[in-house]
Amino acid sequence: MEKEQLKLALIQATLQWENPKANLLSFEEMLQQVSQEADLIILPEMFSTGFTMTPQNLSSAEGKYALTWMQKQAAQYNAMILGSLVWPLGEGQFANRLFAVTPSGEFQYYDKRHCFTLAGEDEVYQAGNQHLILEWRGFKICPLICYDLRFPVWSRNTFDYDLLVYVANWPAPRINAWDALLKARAIENMAYCAGVNRVGEDENNHQYPGHSSLFNPLGKSLVYQEEKSGVLEAVIHKKEVVENRSKLRFLEDRDRFEIH
């Protein structure tokens, strides 16, 4: 079913530390605020646990439990759901894995390419090396995770995507970079760009101020919210992407490269 517009629901939430069941229950309550017409629901990074560097504290079954929960919610709301989880790879190894789940229960995944060295994420989680380009109801979507936002080459629109998505646990001291880079990624890639961050304080006393937002292909802010939990909804239009790229052919002049 292809559509000319896609309705997004960005869910900005407080997360309870390493407590998947409590977090999933909280998201169930927040999902009740989502419009029935939503096509794409976006949750934060590590939405069931918070940004933990001690994944061994979690039951090995928690990742699969959260994925099953995503399948149930996607079916209930007839929408694709995006969000990343702590995912066990076996033999004590883990990935920060984003799942894209459809109402039919099918899913695809993306493993975070750039692990956050400042927090030691690179020592705990295995980095991915493949993009995921989703095709959903007539739109092409590129989902990425948090620290990936700082790397424009990895985010570059060589896939003709319409929407770039970042799910995150981005802390307050560097929130100005989050705001600036989301806008820049929209402009340079001539695509809508959505960023979904968490709010509140984690076990390590890091503060998260939200600033979840959506920018259009020219960098105009469409939705934005600070500090508090909530659901932000907006509609993106295929026509706006096509017309801007036809009129302003900046992507045709982009540098060509390969990532190794």
Rank of each mutant, 00 (worst) to 15 (best):
A172F: 07
G138I: 01
F139P: 02
D160H: 13
S212A: 10
N57L: 14
G92R: 02
N197M: 06
S221A: 10
W69H: 06
P44V: 07
Y147W: 11
K183Y: 01
F250S: 12
L149G: 04
L25A: 15
L214I: 07
R137M: 09
L8T: 01
A177I: 09
E203D: 07
T117L: 11
E135H: 14
F94D: 04
N204H: 11
F47K: 09
S229D: 10
S26I: 01
Q76H: 12
L248F: 13
R198I: 15
G63K: 02
K21A: 15
A13F: 07
S104F: 04
T14F: 05
S84F: 00
T54E: 14
V167C: 06
A119D: 09
L132R: 02
A186V: 04
F159Y: 13
A184L: 08
N216C: 08
F151V: 09
P88C: 09
W69G: 05
L118T: 14
E121W: 00
E240N: 06
E252I: 06
N23S: 12
F250K: 13
E121D: 14
F51S: 14
A184S: 08
G128V: 06
D122W: 11
Q73V: 05
S48R: 07
L163Q: 03
L164Q: 05
W154S: 10
G105A: 10
K228S: 11
Q33S: 14
N157I: 02
E188R: 07
T14C: 04
S59D: 14
E233N: 09
S246D: 11
L182T: 00
